[in-house]
Amino acid sequence: MEPDQETPPRVRPGPLWWLAYAMGTGLPERHRTWVLYDTTTRTWVWRHVARTLVQLAVPIALVLLLVPGAFWIRGLSALGGLILGMAFSLAYMTEAVENRVKKAGYAPGSAQAVRDRAGRVRDARDSERRRAAAAKRAARYRDRRAR
């Protein structure tokens, strides 16, 4: 199914399903449109960061709790892992998001296409708003010059 076709209502997953989704599991069919929304909304980057932090929480907790040694060494090790994990995640963010969309049953590239289309609509709306503001300023200027 392509993203421009009529879609069923968006059903947000519950906390346990979201946790599984954040860890990389696919969601049931009823959450399909929510996955596309999750990966294409204006906050999609922050949502990706949140999912990454959930994924990194497990190894960081294990390092902090189970590795022997001084806590500051474990803490710095965990911080280093967090920095490297976030860098890797951000470097491959679009690929990871497209993989989530593909797991939900959409064609590869669907999320980027939806984001691009939304960007064009947003740009057109902003352009029209700026054009209207410029016309308003020009009219004000003409009124002042006419006096």
Rank of each mutant, 00 (worst) to 15 (best):
M86A: 04
V35S: 00
A91S: 12
Y37R: 03
A78K: 00
F71G: 08
R32Y: 00
A50G: 14
Y92G: 10
T43V: 11
A91P: 02
W18M: 11
P28I: 10
A78N: 02
E95V: 04
G80W: 13
H48E: 03
L65M: 14
A96R: 12
F88K: 08
M23H: 08
A61T: 14
L62C: 05
W46G: 07
R100W: 00
R51K: 15
W46Q: 13
R47Y: 05
L82Q: 06
L79R: 06
T33S: 14
L66P: 08
L65R: 12
V101R: 05
T25E: 05
R42V: 04
E95M: 09
F88G: 09
T43S: 13
P28G: 08
P28K: 06
T39Y: 07
A57Y: 01
L79Y: 15
L19M: 12
V58C: 01
G75V: 07
T25N: 13
M86R: 05
G75D: 01
V97F: 01
L76N: 11
L27N: 02
A61Q: 00
E29F: 01
F71E: 12
W46T: 14
P28R: 06
A20H: 04
L53T: 06
L79K: 09
E29L: 11
R74P: 02
I60F: 03
L84D: 03
G24W: 10
A61D: 01
